[in-house]
Design a protein around this nucleic acid. Structure first.
Length: 428
RNA sequence: GUGACCGUAGCUCAGGCGGUUAGAGCGCCAGGUUGUGGCCCUGGAGGUCGGGGGUUCAAGUCCCCUCGGUCACCCCA
């Protein structure tokens, strides 16, 4: 409680033991392994990109009017280079795709990622300054099946984890042109009632009127309710695309709700937009979100348009939801044996024996403190060791260890070289 | 960035209107067996009461500042 150095605000440690799933390594591993298994069944390939990226990638990729870019970036400069700790992974993945000319590989490209992201927001439940996202992208096709497959994969992961009490909402934003037309219509609609809008929404009127639609302020919702519908301004091709996506989802039995006011916050989205919400994790309820982003590649410098669709999901929120629903994870591998050496010569023997048993594939530990036998037995018990192996002068002389079964309380004499066989035989 | 609540041992928490050596339970360590765990008993270590300043004869307790935590707004995964 003195001036020990602490972790930075909004960051946290994941520990071997913790009552909360989010702070417990075993829960993370279980979630990660399940996620990877599903993603790999969907034929996504893992991609890993740097934690730092050029500022311009994020600023141009996500859009200059987004909150993330204008006030939530951890950025710094050295020399002439402006760096940013990545706030998300879609733009970096697209960057890698373009940089390595991955469009030259056969067919559309399917990637998944997992890693830390950074946003300088005020921490609260489900929101941290360093947080973790996993997600997947299908790059190189505008086929509606790609959209449907991304959405299906997003929810399939929750099914695989046994997560319930979630809701999938979908919408279409139309193409770039229809989105621009609709923005103009909205500006006209809201202009007369400008002074009734919140300060934030008044700014959005200029920068991105669509964002006013998903306001959470009650008095704004009333105004929004009567606003012109996005759907009536969406281009026909996008509407057809949307209908196709919905049909594919129905075909595989994915439940969804259409939400005409669902507008994703990032500028690069067009056409399909979707979000998965949990009702168990507080105000930051979005477990995952995504959509089509056919304009991102050009925004970050590609000469050609590259159609793409993807999702991103939050690990912390997933773990909070798992915890709320008592989703369990496999217990850690049990300890096969705890070795106790009494006397210097025996301790040396135990050290070597432990090494050999580990090489044989057994999970063993021996105490490194010079403590009493009683204390070591107690430790063995607390570590839930299946066996205790005791070696003193007598055992050293006869090359026979005392092997105590910690469940039965029985004890027998076992030759050193028979130890692996005995320990393995009692595994189950 | 804004707001509310909170900050006493490793953990969970007690500490009426300020009063002298700051407590409990659990955990940890040791002893009760010259080489044996769980239960029980005994003892011990561990706190500059988040930090700084102020009021007062006296501050864990009151005031101010500050740093953290939690939750919400906002925004998003």
């Amino acid at each position: 409680m003195k001036h020990t150095i602490r972790s930075i605000e909004g960051t946290y440690d994941i520990l071997p033991q913790s009552p909360s799933a989010m702070h417990r390594a075993a829960a993370w591993r279980h979630a990660e392994e399940t996620i990877r298994a599903v993603l790999e069944r969907f034929a996504f390939e893992e991609i890993r990109t740097p934690v730092v990226e050029p500022l311009a990638l994020i600023a141009r990729g996500m859009g200059g009017s987004t909150d993330i870019v204008t006030k939530e970036m951890f950025s710094f400069e050295r020399g002439k280079t402006h760096y940013v700790l990545r706030p998300e992974l879609t733009a970096p993945v697209m960057r890698a795709y373009l940089q390595h000319h991955m469009g030259q590989r056969p067919g559309e490209q399917r990637f998944f990622y997992f890693g830390p992201c950074f946003r300088a927001e005020r921490p609260q439940k489900g929101r941290y300054r360093q947080f973790h996202q996993y997600g997947a992208e299908i790059i190189g096709t505008n086929d509606a099946r790609a959209d449907a497959e991304i959405i299906a994969c997003t929810v399939e992961i929750y099914r695989a984890l046994g997560l319930k009490n979630t809701k999938l909402r979908i919408n279409t934003l139309g193409d770039a042109a229809s989105r621009a037309r609709y923005s103009a219509v909205l500006r006209e609609y809201f202009a007369p009632m400008k002074d009734k809008l919140s300060a934030a929404s008044q700014k959005r009127l200029q920068s991105n009127p669509l964002r006013i639609l998903d306001t959470k302020l009650d008095y704004e919702r009333d105004l929004v309710r009567n606003a012109p519908q996005l759907m009536t301004h969406v281009d026909e091709e996008s509407l057809n695309h949307y209908e196709a996506v919905k049909a594919y989802l129905k075909r595989v039995g994915i439940d969804f709700a259409e939400d005409p006011f669902l507008v994703r916050g990032l500028d690069y989205y067009s056409r399909t937009a979707f979000e998965v919400e949990s009702f168990d994790i507080g105000a930051q309820s979005a477990l995952a979100g995504g959509g089509r982003y056919d304009r991102l590649a050009e925004a970050i410098g590609s000469k050609q348009a590259v159609p793409a669709v993807g999702f991103a999901a939050g690990m912390e929120r997933l773990l909070l939801a798992m915890e709320a629903q008592d989703v369990s994870w496999p217990a850690a591998a049990p300890l096969d044996a705890f070795l106790i050496g009494l006397g210097e010569a025996a301790k040396a023997e135990v050290f070597a024996l432990a090494f050999q048993l580990r090489r044989d594939g057994l999970h063993v530990v021996h105490g490194l403190h010079n403590r009493s036998m009683k204390a070591q037995m107690r430790t063995a018990h607390r570590l839930r060791a299946r066996y205790c192996i005791i070696i003193g002068d007598n055992e050293l002389a006869s090359r026979q260890a005392q092997v105590k079964d910690m469940d039965q309380g029985t004890q027998e004499s076992v030759p050193f070289d028979a130890l692996p066989r005995i320990l393995f035989s009692h595994r189950s």
